[in-house]
């Protein structure tokens, strides 16, 4: 779990920074923008062999694929969040004298929060899958490893229980954390009416 949080945090930071550059500079959009879209379509487990070559079969490799799975999604969502900040907010901010970093911090970022949260939700799904796959193949403890152990011992009950736990954790995070966060933000940002 620690891995996924760390990986996730890195993905958010990198995603926001890349998103910023893609949004801000046309040249970056034309070049990097396309690459990111291509990278996004690679399932993160595909990175695993490369990670093993680079870092060896260890925790770091798992962290790497968890991060990389979430990063591209975050980048794409951050970019589209920044791009879709309503003109009206931008005009209002300028009228009151906002510019530069202040403009980014008080308008562009908060206005993109709904998109960023949907990005998080998708990124979470990718990361969670990547984590399980990584642990299954790579070890380093965790649920994936337990699953692998169950298989080698031929313990059906262990395998099934671990699968159930994986499903439960995945669902709880998706439904309780992200879904609720998304709904609250959408109501507050005025995208969705009060239900």
């Amino acid at each position: 779990m620690g891995r996924i949080l760390l990986g996730f945090t890195i993905a958010i930071v990198v995603g926001l920074i890349l998103g910023y550059f893609i949004w801000r500079y046309k040249l970056v959009e034309d070049t990097l923008g396309f690459v990111v879209t291509a990278l996004q379509s690679i399932p993160s487990i595909v990175w695993f062999p490369l990670a093993i070559i680079w870092f060896g079969l260890n925790d770091f490799s798992i962290l790497f694929i968890v991060t990389i799975g979430a990063t591209w999604t975050m980048t794409v969502n951050a970019t589209s969040g920044f791009k879709n900040v309503p003109q009206l907010y931008q005009r209002v901010a300028k009228v009151y004298g906002s510019s530069g970093f202040h403009f980014l911090r008080t308008v562009i970022l908060p206005a993109s929060v709904p998109q960023i949260i949907s990005g998080l939700r998708i990124a979470w799904a990718f990361s969670w899958r990547a984590l399980m796959a990584g642990e299954l193949l790579g070890g380093g403890g965790g649920l994936g490893q337990l699953l692998e152990m169950g298989r080698s011992l031929g313990q059906m009950d262990l395998v099934i229980s671990v699968m159930i736990i994986i499903a439960i954790i995945g669902t709880i995070v998706d439904n309780v954390v992200f879904s609720r966060l998304e709904r609250n933000v959408e109501v507050k940002w005025g995208i969705r009416g009060r239900a």
Binding site: P86, L88, Y89, R91, V92, K94, V95, Y96, G97, T106, V107, P110, A111, V113, K188, W189, G190
Partner: peptide
């Protein structure tokens, strides 16, 4: 733009956050 000339738009344009 300057604080001595402010605009009220058709939509209020309040920051929801």
């Amino acid at each position: 733009p300057g604080p001595e000339r402010v605009v009220v738009f058709q939509e209020a344009g309040l920051f929801p956050w």
